[in-house]
Design a protein around this nucleic acid. Sequence first.
DNA 1: AATATATGAATGAACG
DNA 2: CGTTCATTCATATATT
Lengths: 181, 181
Amino acid sequence: TVTGSSAMAKPELLVLQKQVMTDEQIETLQKQIRAYSTICNQLVEMHKAMSQQHPSSLPSFLMGQHTLYDLASGTPGFRTSARQRWTPSQIQLQILERLFEQGTATPNKQRIKEITMELSQHGQISETNVYNWFQNRKARAKRKQSHPQKEGESEIETDDEFPREKKFKPESDSNPQNAES
Amino acid sequence: TVTGSSAMAKPELLVLQKQVMTDEQIETLQKQIRAYSTICNQLVEMHKAMSQQHPSSLPSFLMGQHTLYDLASGTPGFRTSARQRWTPSQIQLQILERLFEQGTATPNKQRIKEITMELSQHGQISETNVYNWFQNRKARAKRKQSHPQKEGESEIETDDEFPREKKFKPESDSNPQNAES
DNA sequence: AATATATGAATGAACG
DNA sequence: CGTTCATTCATATATT
């Protein structure tokens, strides 16, 4: 039985007015469940390893949590991946790279359509894939040059990283000003 | 209507023929998520108590699990990344989505103030955040129809066994949107 | 197997 | 408002 231990996590993502969920909502739920599943199992494993006790001695609050095991242990590894990300084939990559070198940095809509059409002959691809690829390619190229040898030592400490030059839109008409603290 | 019906591998409880969930199913999901949430937090607490280490030293598999602590918002111990960029909480997102669906496409300044006031009760937020969110939401909703974000798996894997129960998207490439720049 | 890296995708913010 | 940029998230792949 799920006894609400505290008021820490209140997944209200399910509060709907109707009994209809969209694909996106279902996918969100799957992700969340999968995340919990993974972490729960990992944590349980760690706990067992640390306590060095009989593997059957689980803390009391895990008793009766059949819902957990029904969900998670049913499929080890939990292949719930709702969406696989696109992976360009070698041919596609070559074509894309060549286009990029030729100066096609940010193709417009029409250009993307053409490229997608072209690349679709060498594997499954969508316009969004092409769009994302060029965006990432450009961003990566830019970061590489400005960040040649810098090592990513940035830790999660409270180091006040200067938050970039934040530019406000000097709109004084219908644009709210930022009031963040 | 919901176009891309994805019949991918997923927990049994989510295998649906349509994108419609019954009250019971939603309730089941809520219970399961709550269970995960509770157990995860308990396990994390226990682990911290046992390891007697810095509360910030969490195992690697918890790194980057933003999905978790977004869901279990406010969970202490998880890396409190002082991110520069505003990230709406689940509740905030939910409210925003609802407002958007209700037709609040472009709220004026006054409306933004109200919304910000409302949302600020569920986390840090500024009027600019709200403004940007609606702008982005609208822009991307529009592009959504022109870019069918339906990518399949790449068939570059020649050593494929047999066609699994992959999801099949009705790639009808419906709307040849013509938006030249 | 666990960790590190590469990279596709998502999204808040900014620009013209 | 449409488009682009910058950063982050998530996962496939590589490395140890």
